[in-house]
C-alpha cells in the first residue's frame, strides 16, 4: 500500500472524506453567520445556541410527540427560525445601530439563557437520538466504510448551501439582501420593508444553524452545551473566510473541515488548535480573510 508520511493512502482518503463531512457542518453554520452579519451587521453569538436548539428540538420533538426525523428536519428549523424572528423583533431591533458590543453581549446573553434553561431541564450528559432506520448501515468504498448517514450529511448540507447561495446571488429576494447589506436606508426609500427583511434574515440565518443541528442529532452527542464548542471553531472559520462573503463561508467551512481531518491523522494533539493557527496566519497575511474584500 502506498504511504504518505507513514500514513497509508487509504486512510488519507478516508480522513479527507471525514473532513468534508465535518466541514459541511462548519459551512452551514458559517453561512448563517455571514448572512446575518451582512444585513444586520452583528456577530451572532447566539448561533451556537440555535444549532443546539435544532438538535435538542429534534430529540425533544421525537420524545414528546413522536415526530420523526424527516418532519423534524423541516419543523425544527422552522420553529427555531421563529424563535429567531422573535428575538430580532423584541430584542435586537432595540439596539440596532448601537455599538457592536451591545449586540454581542445581547446575543451572548440569549445563548447563555437558552443553555441554562435546557441544562436545568435535561442536564449536560447528552440525550440519545436513534439513527433513522433508512440510514442504518453503510457502503464500503474500498478505502473506508462510509455510513449512509454521513453521506446524507454531505448531500443535505451541500444542497442547502448551494440553495442558499443561489437564493442570495441569483434571485430577487437575494438582490434585496445584497442591496440591504450595502444601504438599507435607500432600500426603504424604494418602498422595501427593511425591518421585515431584517427579521426574516435573522430568522433564516438561525434556521441554517438549526438545520445543521438536526443533521448533527443522530451522530453527535446532543447536549445543551454542544453549541458553545462548535461556535468558537465556526467563528474562526468565518474570520478565515472573511465575513460577508457567502460563497467564501461555504468553501472555507469545507476547507477547514479537511484541514482539521488531516491534522487528526498526522498530528492528533493539534487537531483542536489547527483552525485557530490557520486563523492567525490568515489574519497576518490577509487581514480581511481569504474571500473578504481588501480594505
Amino acid at each position: 500500500m502506498s504511504m504518505i508520511f507513514g500514513v497509508p493512502m487509504a486512510v488519507l482518503y478516508g480522513q479527507l472524506l471525514i473532513g468534508v463531512i465535518n466541514g459541511a457542518f462548519y459551512a452551514l453554520l458559517s453561512l448563517g453567520l455571514a448572512v446575518i452579519f451582512g444585513l444586520l451587521k452583528i456577530i451572532n453569538f447566539a448561533h451556537g445556541a440555535m444549532y443546539m436548539l435544532g438538535a435538542m428540538g429534534t430529540v425533544i420533538l421525537f420524545d414528546t410527540l413522536g415526530v420523526n426525523y424527516w418532519v423534524a428536519l423541516f419543523l425544527a428549523p422552522v420553529l427555531v427560525g421563529t424563535v429567531g424572528v422573535l428575538i430580532e423583533y423584541f430584542l435586537l431591533r432595540r439596539i440596532a445601530g448601537q455599538d457592536h458590543i451591545y449586540s454581542l453581549l445581547l446575543t451572548f446573553g440569549v445563548a447563555l439563557i437558552m443553555q441554562g434553561i435546557l441544562t436545568n431541564i435535561y442536564g449536560v450528559s447528552g440525550l440519545r437520538y436513534s439513527m433513522p432506520d433508512v440510514f442504518k448501515g453503510g457502503v464500503n468504498l474500498g478505502f473506508m466504510f462510509l455510513p449512509f448517514y454521513r453521506a446524507w450529511v454531505i448531500v443535505a448540507a451541500l444542497i442547502v448551501c448551494f440553495g442558499t447561495w443561489f437564493m442570495i446571488e441569483k434571485t430577487k429576494l437575494g438582490a434585496y439582501l445584497r442591496a440591504g447589506t450595502e444601504d438599507s436606508q435607500l432600500m426603504q426609500g424604494f418602498g422595501i420593508n427593511v425591518p421585515l427583511l431584517v427579521s426574516l434574515t435573522y430568522g433564516f440565518g438561525v434556521m441554517l444553524a438549526a438545520f445543521a443541528g438536526v443533521l448533527a442529532a443522530p451522530i453527535y452527542s446532543v447536549t445543551p452545551v454542544m453549541g458553545s464548542h462548535i461556535l468558537i471553531v465556526v467563528f474562526a472559520v468565518v474570520v478565515i473566510g472573511g465575513l460577508g462573503s457567502i460563497g467564501g463561508a461555504i468553501i472555507t467551512g469545507i476547507l477547514m473541515g479537511v484541514v482539521e481531518g488531516l491534522t487528526k491523522t498526522f498530528y492528533p494533539p493539534a487537531s483542536s488548535a489547527v483552525i485557530f493557527l490557520v486563523m492567525v496566519v490568515v489574519l497576518m497575511v490577509r487581514p480581511s480573510g481569504l474571500f473578504g474584500k481588501e480594505a
Binding site: 438582490a175 445584497r178 442591496a179 435607500l186
Partner: peptide, 28 residues
Amino acid sequence: CAPHNIARLGVGYCPEHRGIFASLSVQE
C-alpha cells in the same frame, strides 16, 4: 408614515451620489 411606505404613495427618490448598488448587476 414608515420610511418604506412613502414610496408606496407614488414617490420616486434618486439620491445624491446616485446610490447604485455595487453587489447588484445593472439589471438587478
